[in-house]
């Protein structure tokens, strides 16, 4: 076959293939429409059953015994969507329903054997509705080969607020090549109250060094004043500016007046992110001694520091307002910030 003939045959082949693919696509869609329609109807039936079952005195064993694997998948899907809405006694009944109908067991199997995205979804479901056994499964998934599953398992455990060992969790996340995503902040905040002691210990331990910003942040959410010395020390002497800033943010959240020295030190720090957090912390804790230094920061070379300092001053009531009015009279970049802040707060 010559080139010319090959070209014509090639062209014909491509055209035929295109039409065949398009035809197959249309046929596939036609079948899918029927399947999806059935699925949507079944989903509605299951949702209705759930809504009725949550208020009913006793379950309907007949209905539940007829559920198959696809139904359990649909129930899991509905369960995740309803999670934010189901509270208190309803949540307990819903959890019991999911357990009775085998949804929890199916999720546990998926968590072990499913594809990566299925393991992630199973982890989410078990975080929301799982029991003790599910918590153990989630804990084991902290060593999953897929980093997304590890993170999903950690998030699920954080949603439950409990984990068998914070050390194991930190170890798994530290070596999972997880980047510093906001999820990690969420994870450690989830454990902040119930695992405060371990978090404080981990923040000073070499094992937690990769996750220190998140551990320090979690301490701020723990409400534990016994962590103040550690936070103050970190804010005042840690060589890493990010740690100093995190410690000041945590001190601001704890709101204890003992933070005064750390705040004063932070307001004159050479790094602007630390100065910003110090100004915010001064306002959050209400440290009156810091006002003159915050006032000085309204003339900082960095606009964001100027802006945050002016914002902080506006939180100090009359003293801060007076400081802003004084600044507004000058002919400096800080004066413009002060003027605008005064206008904004009006």
């Amino acid at each position: 076959m010559g080139l010319l003939e090959s070209l014509w045959w090639g062209s014909l082949l491509l055209s035929g293939l295109s039409i065949l693919i398009a035809g197959g696509l249309v046929a596939m869609r036609a079948v899918n429409v029927v399947i999806e329609g059935r699925r949507a109807r079944r989903r509605d039936e299951l949702t209705t059953y759930i809504v009725v079952a949550l208020d009913a005195d006793s379950p309907t064993p007949d209905f539940e015994s007829r559920l198959n694997g696809r139904d359990r998948d649909l129930l899991a899907e509905v369960a995740m969507e309803l999670f934010e809405m189901v509270k208190g006694g309803h949540l307990e009944r819903f959890t019991a329903l999911l357990k009775r109908t085998g949804v929890i067991d199916a999720a546990r199997r998926r968590l072990r054997q499913g594809k990566s995205f299925q393991r992630v979804r199973a982890a989410r479901l078990l975080g929301a509705y799982g029991d003790e056994a599910a918590a153990d499964d989630l804990f084991l998934r902290l060593r999953d080969r897929d980093v997304n599953v590890r993170l999903a398992a950690a998030t699920a455990l954080a949603d439950r607020g409990e984990v068998r060992s914070m050390w194991e969790l930190v170890h798994s996340l530290s070596y999972a090549a997880i980047r510093s995503t906001p999820r990690l902040r969420h994870v450690f905040r989830g454990f902040a109250v119930q695992h405060a002691d371990e978090i404080i210990a981990l923040a000073t331990d070499p094992i937690g060094r990769h996750l220190r910003p998140f551990l320090i942040d979690a301490i701020g959410h723990s409400g534990r004043f016994d962590a103040l010395p550690f936070l103050i020390d970190t804010a005042m002497s840690d060589p890493d500016k990010q740690m100093r800033a995190e410690a000041l943010a945590a001190l601001g959240r704890l709101g204890h007046p003992d933070a005064v020295d750390a705040v004063i030190g932070g307001l004159v720090d050479s790094e602007w992110p630390v100065r910003v957090q110090a100004a915010k912390c001064a306002a959050a804790v209400g440290i009156g001694e810091a006002v003159p230094l915050v006032e000085r920061l309204v003339e900082d070379p960095v606009w964001w520091v100027r802006h945050q300092a002016a914002e902080s001053l506006s939180s100090f009531g009359e003293v801060g307002h007076a400081a802003l009015e004084r600044l507004a009279l000058h002919n400096t970049p800080g004066a413009l910030v002060a003027q605008r802040t005064l206008f904004e707060k009006r």
Partner: peptide
């Protein structure tokens, strides 16, 4: 013409 035919059919593909 043959090349144009390939080009068109490939565009459709």
């Amino acid at each position: 013409l043959a090349f144009m035919a390939v080009s068109f059919s490939y565009g459709v593909f």
